[in-house]
Nucleic acid binder design. Structure first.
Lengths: 237, 237
DNA sequence: TAGATTGTTAATCGATTAACAATC
DNA sequence: TAGATTGTTAATCGATTAACAATC
């Protein structure tokens, strides 16, 4: 009865499979083989089959995978068959952007309310969700089922806020503040660290530039231009 | 002279090191050992030393690492010693949120302009950056040095937009549209897929719930409560 | 049936952790 | 100097890829 833990790498790839299958579904593609899908997604067919077989056999020998079935099965694995009530703490641009993002609701993530300390924002409505004063946060959580709290407040407030949220019963946190939240293991935290994403981009940009420069220095600019094609193959992102 | 490629896993960790070192710096911590840092960051000391030694020896035996020096060296590795000019295409909530995020500028990422097709947004200013009509995008790129273009337009427009941007000379793309951009290798794309992040959260929430349920079923609710402590140790995120 | 493609085992590759000599 | 901690090599662990028998 022992089921080995699914690796983080696999979980990270699941939403991407789900997205590609959703796109295929929209194009009315009925079936797809791991090989075809692997070419679209630029991964190996072997990896796709290995990943899926962590959860069961969804395909059929000689046929491949039924797109609609596989899409719906991955949806179930991802927990998308149920609705999630979300609140957003911090109704600035980012909080509002999240509340406005219609696509989340299509997947079952429904923003129920936003909270902010700024009295000017309180009372405004973003789609169906109202901005409430932060003082009401505790009582709101205690009298409504909240599955996920998105934190879009400044770094300085985020750590204390997260601890409060947990003490009021929140089990899922979507954290946009640029800090780690060290919370009990029964609380699930998913981080979106935009500044770190941007730094990864600058790392890659600047390391490509350094490569360029060293080539030019070594070969002279004339040579470097001739070799451009070859180099592209090496400097994959 | 051959230098082995830095692995993606290492690069992903660099910004986090940078953040922790920045925090230590603010607290006027002068030195730190890999062991101390590893406890704060919840990684192994071995990994920290291995990661750093991809780029050189920044520490000193018997002493550890000088916080200020290491912070600045990692900053250099990440390419943060130079300025990056950013434009944002799509001046909706998300685009505005990015333009408003003061912290980016502190790291050298300066938002110079936003672009939008909505005439009501055109002409408004977000901090120092003006919203311009999308028609001006090509000429703007061709007459200004733009290092990074952030894409915050809907999925349907993103792929064509990215191709245009590249044809106009853009080399770095920060993509927020829920789609992959297949661009030439010399273009660096960093993706932020919010919907996928949310799905990872729902996966983890729902798999924890399933574990709960199976325990309750197997043991009866009374037992399950008694075993809560033990279980926490197993269900790490 | 013959051909195609899965599910799965085995082989390879890479990343993490452990250990320790070097050295501040 | 003695103690501490790095830099680095070796051992372990895990993830990816290859291969192929099973089977639709």
């Amino acid at each position: 009865m022992y089921k080995k833990e699914i690796s983080k790498a696999v979980i990270n790839r699941l939403p991407r499979y789900y997205r590609y299958l959703g796109d295929l579904l929209e194009k009315d593609v009925v079936r797809i083989s791991s090989k075809e899908l692997s070419e679209k997604m630029k991964v190996t067919a072997s990896q796709i089959r290995q990943d899926l077989n962590n959860f069961g056999g969804f395909g059929q020998q000689g046929y491949g995978y039924n797109v609609e079935y596989l899409h719906s099965e991955i949806g179930k694995i991802l927990g998308l068959e149920k609705k999630y009530n979300i609140i957003i703490i911090g109704a600035g641009n980012l909080g509002q952007a999240l509340a406005n993002y219609v696509d989340f609701e299509r997947r079952g993530f429904v923003v129920r309310a936003l909270f902010d300390i700024n009295p000017e924002l309180v009372g405004t409505k973003i789609r169906n969700a109202e901005v409430r004063p932060t003082e009401e946060l505790e009582s709101y959580i205690k009298s409504n089922q909240v599955d996920i709290a998105a934190i879009t407040v400044p770094k300085t407030k985020a750590v204390q806020l997260a601890m409060d949220l947990v003490s009021w019963g929140i089990k899922g946190i979507w954290n946009f503040a640029p800090t780690d939240l060290n919370l009990p293991k029964e609380v699930t935290v998913e981080n979106v660290h935009l500044a770190e994403s941007l730094m990864k981009l600058s790392y890659r940009l600047s390391s490509k530039q350094k490569q360029e420069k060293s080539k030019i220095t070594k070969e002279g600019p004339g040579e470097a231009i001739k070799k451009e094609d070859k180099e592209d193959k090496e400097s994959k992102s």
